[in-house]
């Protein structure tokens, strides 16, 4: 008879349960109607089963998003866990869709599910990738835009994990400022 060791069948639990959402820009429907929950997972193996099964961001149509959020937090500014928060935002140029987008997004997911930010990981609410004709965006959302120490630490580590050069700056913006902006740019509360 064959012996199966626990290591061969036990899944590796994650610290958090995560929900992956998909947003499709159908202009005949409302914003919330266009936002769909794909699946939830709480083990490393279930994460990969999902990730290996879905399209990479670079294959999505313009106007689509993926959002990965902790279970119980909706991927919108209005959620109680997000409304005082903000995001580390990375804006990609058009060439980066082929070179960097999928790699950066996977790295972002691995940072989240692996709790890469140590004690500051509790500040993290989720991450979003927006696929847009003018340039794609990836952001990590955190829960409190006043929490400078955690935010800066998360930003520095995130930049390191993405392999960004020291010269490449990324900015952190509050959702309040993003939602009430009049022009096309939002001021950065922090930069790393």
């Amino acid at each position: 008879s064959e012996t199966v060791t626990p290591a061969q069948y036990l899944k590796h639990p994650l610290q958090n349960r995560w929900a992956l959402w998909y947003f499709k820009n159908d202009k005949t429907k409302g914003w919330t109607e266009n936002l769909r929950l794909i699946a939830k997972f709480d083990t490393v193996e279930d994460f990969w089963a999902l990730y290996n099964h879905i399209q990479q961001p670079s294959k999505l149509l313009f106007g689509c998003d993926y959002c990965l959020f902790k279970d119980g937090i909706k991927p919108m500014w209005e959620d109680d866990k997000n409304k005082k928060g903000g995001r580390w935002l990375m804006t990609l140029n058009k060439q980066q869709r082929h070179n960097d987008l999928d790699r950066y997004w996977l790295e972002t997911l691995l940072c989240l599910i692996g709790e890469a930010f140590d004690e500051h990981s509790d500040e993290v609410c989720g991450a979003v990738v927006n696929v847009r004709p003018k340039g794609d965006k990836i952001a990590i959302w955190t829960g409190n835009c006043q929490n400078r120490e955690a935010i800066v630490s998360i930003g520095q580590l995130y930049k390191e994990r993405l392999g960004l050069s020291l010269k490449a700056l990324i900015g952190y913006q509050s959702h309040d400022d993003t939602s009430s902006k009049s022009g096309s740019t939002t001021k950065n509360l922090f930069s790393v």
């Binding site: 610290q15 790295e107 599910i113 692996g114």
Partner: peptide
């Protein structure tokens, strides 16, 4: 309590494990 942390290398190794 303790936090369950996985580094990049470990997570990537799990990608194609049965």
């Amino acid at each position: 309590g303790t936090r369950i942390i996985y580094d990049r290398k470990f997570l990537m190794e799990c990608r194609h494990s049965p």
